[in-house]
Design a protein around this nucleic acid. Structure first.
Lengths: 225, 225
DNA sequence: ACAAAAGTGTTTTCGATACACCCATGT
DNA sequence: ACATGGGTGTATCGAAAACACTTTTGT
């Protein structure tokens, strides 16, 4: 079935992912540099146009793989963006996702068919971004802060387990806030996001720390009233 | 600029709104009956295809006006839906919204160019819906339950103010839960969603009730840690 | 034995819950 | 005066916040 009505013609969908990492207490996001018009030479979030033969998440994952080399991310839905002028090429509506990964465990492609560079930027030192990606990233950071206290999204950062002190540093980096060690432990265990693995991990010349891991499935409890 | 690549061709965007009301303690959603293919004769949520000359919310509002006659709703974004087969006509991605209105204050068009009926259905007595609207409605109900405790979304239901007892009935209907009168008042005042108007309202032969109103702007506080 | 970092328990405080009485109105 | 429904205050409980000492390891 062909659509002739001009009112509907030439619409498209962007699938855009804000890929975050945390390195030494700094929250960073992966940006790529565009090699083509529009916004040639601009930094942007990872993403692109959805194909007709893939659903939203598949499209987002394909774009991530094509433009950064990263595979197998778990995505969390964020928002939709539909301003008329958000793309100068044609009418594009964007669907935004967020993801987390340990930057040390992946090799990022510096150049691809459509990108000329890729780099992790601290979220308080973001360069000007193309399209409406600054707005999308701002919302994504807020969503990330909400998600880490109610989902296992951080699992992507710590596939091999995590100790409480490391976990606390990560939360402090993302929420930009300091916590009491003892209360943090109690709170996090009460959230039911992690479980004990009965193993320990030793760093330097210190007491070994218990290793926890994020659960595969987390039920989201309704807090109110 | 014309897009020739088949991978992107003939995509479109649905903007779909779950319009809720609460009548005598029953939460209801407005459904319309389709007059055209596909899903001719099926009940569906209010919505349709986005035009190229309107942004997402404008499109959702236009569809609402065209198919129900309702104007001036305030929309809250919900989710995006992108399964490949969600529309049998062409590749459509849906953006979903929720809204609330007092069903007694609007006249619903029973028939329009594209609809042959319109009716308020209690949310526990929903007929089979066309497209993927059952899934969208299910998510919308969950989103509604989250929103009424953190936004002024209920303002749409009570443009002229609201008393505590009425408000409590409304919350009980939407959350499907009973509350203690005194605690409910305290809790709701602590949420900072409503403010006193220093007027009272009398119903039948009873003590007049204070009238509150929903604030225009509500700041969303980050609960955690 | 000492330094460095991890683990644990108790007290205090504040918000949530449970609960009972008084007040304003119309008949 | 009474019936109906609305308004308010207090005691109790549980979760969150504040806070200090002990344990393990390497040197």
């Amino acid at each position: 079935m062909e659509v002739k009505n001009k009112l509907y013609k030439n619409q498209g969908i962007h699938v855009i992912t804000s890929i975050f990492t945390v390195e030494q207490g700094i929250t960073k996001v992966l940006l790529i540099k565009r090699k083509n018009q529009p916004f040639l030479g601009s930094w942007v979030l990872t993403g692109g146009a959805l194909y007709n033969n893939e659903d939203l998440e598949s499209g987002a994952l394909r774009e991530i793989k094509e433009k950064t080399g990263i595979e197998g991310l778990e995505l969390i839905a964020s928002k939709a963006y539909g301003k008329l002028d958000r793309s100068p090429v044609m009418r594009m509506v964007a669907i935004s996702y967020i993801a987390l990964i340990d930057s040390n465990r992946v090799h990022i492609l510096k150049e691809t068919r459509n990108t000329s560079d890729a780099e992790w930027f601290p979220i308080d030192k973001i360069p000007p971004l193309g399209f409406d990606h600054e707005e999308i990233l701002k919302d994504a950071i807020e969503e990330l802060q909400k998600q880490i206290v109610k989902s296992n999204i951080l699992k992507g950062l710590f596939p091999n387990g995590i100790t409480m002190p490391e976990l606390q540093k990560t939360y402090e980096a993302i929420l930009n806030k300091k916590f009491d060690r003892r209360n943090f432990r109690k709170k996090l265990l009460s959230l039911n996001l992690i479980e004990d693995t009965n193993t320990t991990n030793k760093f330097e010349g210190n007491k070994p720390a218990k290793v926890y891991r994020f659960k595969e499935k987390v039920e989201d409890k309704n807090i109110f009233l």
